[in-house]
């Protein structure tokens, strides 16, 4: 699904990713963990194609294609989804417009007709129930006046509606209380499927208690310094990152 080789990336002229290698096979859930400032969010943004995040060397292959050659919108249409750490508020663009425009953009790319308005609304309502979101949020501006937890749930709602092939969730657990974390995890788990891959970018292990990863990678100073199974995350929770930082140095 996703192959990253020797990825170097700079932000504002400063090198953040320094030769990152990562492979996520189809159907697997991988966690990328690391201390603050290690490059986790940069990796997520580079995958989504955010302007200002400049790839200076390396390759990213997604479903056999050169991901870096695609614009951000074409990546999304090809099935890449970024769950934002800080979802943006867009007053005046309402949630249901955004969802519909996003779904239609994907369908257009695939040569499918636009979604039927009635079917679409019932699909969205069903997913909202799963995320325990109030229907009134549909008519509100995108994330406008939402609490931190509501914004994160809205990200997952979008993901559930868009059904991406590869979802990269950037610190989706940050700012969530335990109940909200469970709802978000439940939403993510419903998307686990043999044809889909998930990358969970997180600082803490607690999300991984609810979404059990197939592999865990540790990102330190712009590189993956260790990979392992779920037990690695438990180990990190007990020992912190310092021992890996010293090893990497």
């Amino acid at each position: 699904m996703l192959k990253i080789h020797n990825l170097h990336a700079t932000v504002d002229g400063k090198e953040i990713l320094k030769g990152l290698d990562l492979e996520v096979p189809t159907g697997e859930v991988h966690a990328v963990m690391g201390p603050n400032g290690s490059g986790k969010s940069t990796l997520a943004y580079v995958l989504a194609g955010r302007p200002g995040y400049l790839v200076t060397a390396g390759t990213i292959t997604y479903e056999g294609r050169d991901l870096l050659a695609l614009s951000p919108e074409d990546r999304a249409r090809a099935g890449v989804f970024l769950g934002f750490q800080y979802p943006v508020e867009i007053p005046g663009v309402n949630n249901v417009y955004l969802l519909k425009a996003a779904v239609n953009a994907v369908r257009k790319q695939r040569g499918e007709p636009e979604v039927d308005a009635f079917e679409f609304l019932s699909l969205v309502r069903e997913k909202m129930r799963l995320m325990r979101m109030d229907e009134s949020m549909l008519a509100r501006g995108v994330n406008e006046g939402f609490s931190g937890g509501e914004k994160k749930r809205n990200e997952i709602l979008q993901m559930l509606v868009l059904e991406p092939h590869l979802a990269v969730l950037d610190e989706t657990d940050s700012g969530l209380d335990i109940d909200a974390l469970k709802i978000v995890a439940q939403g993510v788990n419903t998307l686990r499927a043999p044809e889909r891959s998930l990358v969970l970018v997180t600082h803490y292990q607690r999300l991984l208690e609810h979404i059990v990863p197939d592999r865990v990678h540790v990102l330190v100073n712009g590189r993956i310094v260790r990979s392992g199974d779920r037990s690695l995350a438990v180990q990190l929770e007990q020992r912190g990152y310092d021992w890996l930082i010293s090893e990497a140095a």
Binding site: P72, P91, V93, A102
Partner: peptide
């Protein structure tokens, strides 16, 4: 944010102007 949801740049800009 809009681009990352697959919305093309021209429409994304229009949406934001509209908003």
């Amino acid at each position: 944010y809009l681009l990352a949801r697959g919305i093309g740049a021209p429409l994304a800009q229009q949406l934001l102007k509209w908003a």
